[in-house]
Design a protein around this nucleic acid. Structure first.
Lengths: 158, 158
DNA sequence: GTCATTTACGTGCATACGCACTTTATAGCA
DNA sequence: TGCTATAAAGTGCGTATGCACGTAAATGAC
């Protein structure tokens, strides 16, 4: 087996646990991140930044709303936005509710997003070429299914 | 579809790219990491630290060798080890080749590793309960297969 | 209208990640 | 033996992550 197995027996009743799903996910996630970032690097974008870009638009959007859609920690997003604001891709403003920090893309940000989308298409096609299109489709479905069963931990619902 | 889709059409020849596999992987990885860490938190362990623990033993092992096995950046491992050394779980020493930093678990580290393994078993069983054992097994196989096809980017081979 | 609660957000701290560059030590060759 | 190439590791920097705590604004009970 190619991936290191994290499971040591431990005498206990019932079925043995399967090899560590989390380790495989982490490892595959790392490799695919590198894979996609090869295509985004020419644009000076990290994968996280790209994912923020594609979830932003011209319409102002509150930070928490964006964080929820990205399923990213609010405070992580705050800090991830800083370099994007400095580079003029994103603007932050305040509306009638002065608590909300409203975020939107600048024209530069919109243009970058389009270029980045083009690169993403190349990356995804390339990934499908490596994995096989049918396999990629199946994998997507399994990931989808797993996501449906493992709900995000929502601090707001506890 | 539950996961946000990162793909916008873009007119181009051939098949449309599938929805973003990387986004699904990242999202599922985040959720499962939270899932496993619920079980490791009582031991004061992050998932990364746990994965380092289970790849260490009493026998001294060079940093780069460990990093390769963990498929983790060498410099990341250097810094990840620091708190584990400070807490007395890991010791670093030099052998005949003074370049190599040899790492091994202390008795405390070994004891912690065993307790952590117990927690991992609980986490993995719990994950299998949520996803279904058969589905987890299938998912593991797909991840395995994808890992076999997407090789790690090895700086040493370039 | 006042004040406690809630909501949205920021910051401090620690871990995690990886690239570029530097340092130190070994290996290999003249 | 000495000098260069290579190997292993450390450090600076920037990004990424999330928890605990703090702050300001809005909400709601009275």
């Amino acid at each position: 087996m190619h991936v290191n197995d994290i499971d040591a027996g431990l005498g206990h009743p019932g079925l043995e646990p399967l090899p560590c799903t989390g380790a495989r996910l982490r490892r595959l996630n790392r490799r695919t991140t590198v894979f996609y970032e090869q295509y985004l690097r020419p644009l000076g974008l990290r994968l996280t930044q790209y994912s923020v870009l594609v979830h932003l638009g011209s319409a102002p959007q509150a930070l928490l709303e964006l964080a929820d859609r990205l399923e990213m920690d609010r405070t992580t997003l705050t800090r991830s936005l800083r370099p994007m604001i400095e580079r003029g891709w994103v603007v932050a403003s305040r509306g009638s509710d002065a608590r909300l920090r409203l975020l939107s893309l600048t024209p530069d940000g919109l243009a970058l997003r389009e270029r980045a989308r083009g690169q993403w298409v190349r990356a995804q096609r390339s990934l499908e070429a490596v994995l096989g299109r049918a396999f990629t489709c199946e994998l997507n479905q399994r990931l989808e299914e797993a996501l449906a069963r493992i709900k995000p931990s929502l601090p707001e619902e506890n």
